[in-house]
């Protein structure tokens, strides 16, 4: 524990800021919760104030706000089609929440809540449960035909159906681990190289340059992972709506 205090993983430790206990559960307001609140405030400020004037010819800020809206709108249209409109508020919130969580995590000393497996897993599990319920609500018992690959010979079914079910059940795991691992690895790597800068003295310029490049890459990954999470959610919804 003591060794971890100043190690590259120390940045991920959750520290309670305000002790709250409800029904025997520790629901303390932590640095992770603070990061979430800051994320929500940042998104709201970005979008509400960006659109405040609602000009016909948008300025820079309004263009960015509209751009994020249209980006998610196109994502839904391309993956689900016209019926995807219904899920827009949810996908938009999900995308913005992860994107801002990732990007704000790039600010030094700001906690990155998406680097915690429990947070990403909770989000992925909600997506998984929502999609499964949607599939059953739309197709009833026929939803199980989703686990039978179309055109597969009957003899292959005993082999293919378990594979399909396992791949379906592993969706929340792959969805959550992808985001969590990317954030964890990126931030750990930055911290490790930052340690080299101090340790190497004058030669520390080399890892410093590397950190600058890596920061750029991490910002790209922050965006990319939010995009991947949103597009996979869209694809899962599309699967539930159209089966194959």
């Amino acid at each position: 524990m003591a060794a971890e205090k100043h190690g590259p993983l120390e940045q991920f430790s959750v520290k309670p800021l305000l002790k709250i206990e409800l029904g025997g559960l520790d629901l303390s307001f932590t640095n992770s919760a603070l990061a979430m609140v800051i994320t929500v405030v940042a998104i709201s400020v970005f979008l509400v104030f960006g659109m405040r004037s609602g000009r016909l010819v948008p300025g820079r800020w309004q263009s960015m706000a509209e751009g994020s809206y249209e980006f998610v709108g196109n994502l839904l249209r391309e993956t689900i089609g016209a019926e995807g409109r219904k899920y827009f508020p949810y996908i938009f919130t999900l995308f913005m929440f992860i994107l801002f969580g990732n990007l704000l995590g790039m600010v030094p000393s700001h906690f990155t809540f998406t680097s915690h497996i429990i947070v990403t897993f909770a989000m992925a599990l909600v997506v998984f449960i929502f999609v499964t319920i949607l599939g059953f609500a739309k197709h009833g018992i026929r939803f199980f035909s989703f686990f039978v690959p179309p055109g597969a010979p009957l003899a292959m079914w005993p082999l293919l159906i378990p594979i399909e079910i396992i791949s379906y059940l592993s969706r929340p795991i792959s969805l959550s681990v992808r985001l969590f691992a990317n954030m964890l690895a990126g931030h750990t790597l930055l911290k490790v190289f930052a340690g080299f800068v101090v340790a190497l003295g004058a030669a520390g310029v080399v890892p410093l340059v590397f950190i600058v490049a890596l920061t750029g890459l991490e910002i790209l990954i922050a965006f990319l992972q939010a995009y991947v999470f949103a597009i996979l959610t869209c694809l899962y919804i599309n699967d539930a709506l159209h089966l194959h």
């Binding site: 932590t30 706000a65 949810y90 929440f97």
Partner: peptide, 28 residues
């Protein structure tokens, strides 16, 4: 810390969803 993280995730996400759903998205 898992209960706390999930709890605050749920609270902040729902708040953000409501802001998006009823203020931001209609406006845009």
């Amino acid at each position: 810390t898992y209960p706390s993280q999930v709890f605050w995730l749920f609270v902040t996400f729902v708040v953000l969803f409501l802001i998006m759903r009823f203020a931001v998205i209609p406006k845009i």
